[in-house]
Design a protein around this nucleic acid. Structure first.
Length: 515
RNA sequence: GCCCUCGUAGUUCAAUGGAUAGAAUAGGAACCUUCUAAGUUCUAGAUGUUGGUCCGAUUCCAACCGAGGGCACCA
């Protein structure tokens, strides 16, 4: 990666100094393609004159990578040489859809658990947010060299299921409402609320949740049932282990976990006084089960309303002898629903919600994915269906897809060709070089997301890449009388196509050949 | 009361402590005889408040104001 290479060159020129400097892309193109603050940091440490230090470092930098190195305002700015950029095209055309594959994951096994909505009703907007996030993060981590497994945890036993049973029966303990409950009432027969609840949960999972998951194009490797943890006695075994290790105590008839000793703000009940095990008990067993399957890292998507869970999960993790750092909890803020400018409280219990299916039917999957992914997961999200519908035709995803379609159209028109590396030196129009600069950023985007999970980098990058292509398209005609130039430009747009496709596919968005 | 998240153009969102705060939409003005105008070019417009740290703060710290969430023998 270019950024890494530049960093190494700088480190060489300041040998002996260990500094936490950065290399970044400046906001203004006039300030170079990449820039470093190393002189500012070094000056602060040594107290020497800034300009002198910067020039001294600049003097030691000698690389074919740069056409120009400048000192300005204490920053050292690098201008990438045309030769280097032209050479990169070859790399992309050779690697094709493998371009951007990284090895930072070192094939470590990662388990990503997301959605995991209770089987008590349809998937809603919030589940969509988590669903797209989990799916795309999985894609990115896989690209970064991790072995990724997608998992959906089904809470198919316990209090919620009992309440579902009551709701289907329609007695005074009913909590869930909606058409699907009325439908289940006609279909499901059973002796007890528990039995009816369990049967209903199965139907909801198979007939509602799984089809919705398929509709938003997510494939889970594992659908993990909570009931299985009880059947295999894993919950009991886990509680025993905690007991033996001295992390539990009895009080007022209940069994408690000493989570407060491990970073949580209070202790938590594992077995209630009435003998019923809490969800937390099975969640610990589930945690142990996941580590037991050999995962090096667990990523868990949680809604903000489950935020309090993070501390106790980490406490449990520690108690069982695993490292807290091996669990990454991603908390996503809730989606608020607006209608006609007013907030409407979403709740499965009141029957007021927007389902995933409705969203996809209204705006389409590509728009929905792009729309959700553009927002950071920890920002509060106000969703207005009318507004979303109105704006969906103007969603920037189309601009990105359009760039891909335009490229396909040109290639269709010209037909097959073989690229000649020697022709790449003809690519020296500013818009051509800009496009190459955008294209080669792709691996850096993957790396950044793999590190900080900020998925919105992906749609943002996609827009910038598409913009660069469209500008190139306006400035340079691909198919012309000049055979060599035509071939060079065809090579360029082919490389752009590869990266556009890679980017869109990571987001789970289609790549149309025609629009 | 304690804890977490958020507050940026009219609107919806970006911005590893960096230079003139970016996009997209909505507004104003241009560009199709030329590989797709779902595009391009120009224009106007924003960091809740008050302090602090720093050469430099949207970013870190403190307080305040506003919004959401969490602090159960609920999930």
């Amino acid at each position: 990666m270019l950024k890494e290479e530049i960093k190494k060159i700088i480190e060489k020129s300041i040998k002996g100094e260990v500094l936490n400097f950065s290399v970044e892309i400046p906001s203004d193109k006039k300030l170079g393609d990449y820039s470093t603050n190393v002189a500012l940091i070094l000056t602060k440490k040594t107290g020497k004159n800034l300009i002198e230090v910067a020039n001294e470092i600049k003097g030691k930098i000698d690389s074919e990578l740069f056409s120009k190195v400048e000192v300005a305002n204490g920053f050292i700015n690098f201008f990438i040489s045309e030769k280097y950029l032209q050479k990169q095209l070859q790399v992309i055309l050779k690697e094709k859809n493998k371009f951007g594959n990284l090895e930072i994951g070192k094939k470590q096994k990662v388990n990503i658990e997301f959605i995991s909505a209770n089987p008590t009703g349809p998937l809603t907007l919030g589940n969509g947010r988590g669903g797209f996030g989990g799916d795309v993060l999985s894609n990115v981590l896989a690209k970064a060299g991790y072995k990724v497994s997608r998992e959906y945890y089904i809470n198919d036993t316990g209090a919620q299921i009992n309440k579902l049973g009551h709701s289907v029966i329609g007695d005074d303990e009913a909590v869930y409402k909606g058409e699907y409950i009325d439908k289940l009432r006609k279909e499901v027969k059973g002796r007890t609320p528990q039995e009816i609840g369990e049967k209903s949960a199965k139907i909801i999972l198979e007939k509602m949740i799984k089809p919705s998951v398929k509709k938003i194009d997510i494939k889970f490797d594992t659908w993990f049932s909570e009931t299985a943890l009880y059947k295999n006695k894993e919950v009991d075994k886990t509680i025993d282990e905690l007991r033996k290790k001295g992390f539990t105590y009895e009080s007022e008839g209940a069994l408690w976990f000493k989570s407060s000793e491990l970073g949580d703000d209070k202790d938590r009940v594992l077995i209630r006084a009435d003998g019923i095990k809490t969800y937390f008990a099975s969640d610990i067993a589930y945690l142990k089960n996941k580590f037991g399957r050999g995962f090096n890292k667990l990523i868990i998507f949680l809604g903000a309303d489950h935020y309090g869970y993070v501390a106790r999960l980490k406490a449990a993790c520690h108690a069982l002898g695993y490292k807290k750092e091996d669990i990454d909890a991603i908390v996503l803020q809730l989606v608020k629903l607006f209608e006609n400018g007013k907030e409407v409280r979403m709740s499965k219990r009141t029957g007021i919600y927007v389902t995933i299916d409705e969203l996809i039917d209204e705006v389409g999957l590509d728009v929905a994915r792009f729309f959700f992914l553009q927002r950071s997961l920890n920002t509060h999200f106000n969703f207005d269906m009318d507004l979303a519908k109105e704006k969906s035709d103007k969603n920037p995803v189309f601009k990105v897809q359009y760039a891909h379609a335009r490229i396909c159209s040109i290639i269709r028109k010209f037909g097959n060709f073989k690229f000649q590396i020697s022709n790449f030196k003809l690519l020296n129009d500013p818009s051509e070089l800009d496009l190459i600069k955008q294209i080669i950023r792709f691996p850096e985007i993957i790396e950044d997301i793999a590190k900080d999970y900020q998925l919105q980098r992906l749609p943002n990058y996609a827009i910038e890449l598409a913009d660069s292509f469209h500008k190139f398209y306006e400035n340079c005609r691909v198919i012309s009388e000049d055979k060599k130039l035509t071939e060079a430009r065809l090579s360029l747009i082919l490389a752009a196509k590869i990266v556009l496709k890679n980017t869109l596919e990571l987001m789970g968005i289609s790549t149309p050949d025609k629009m």
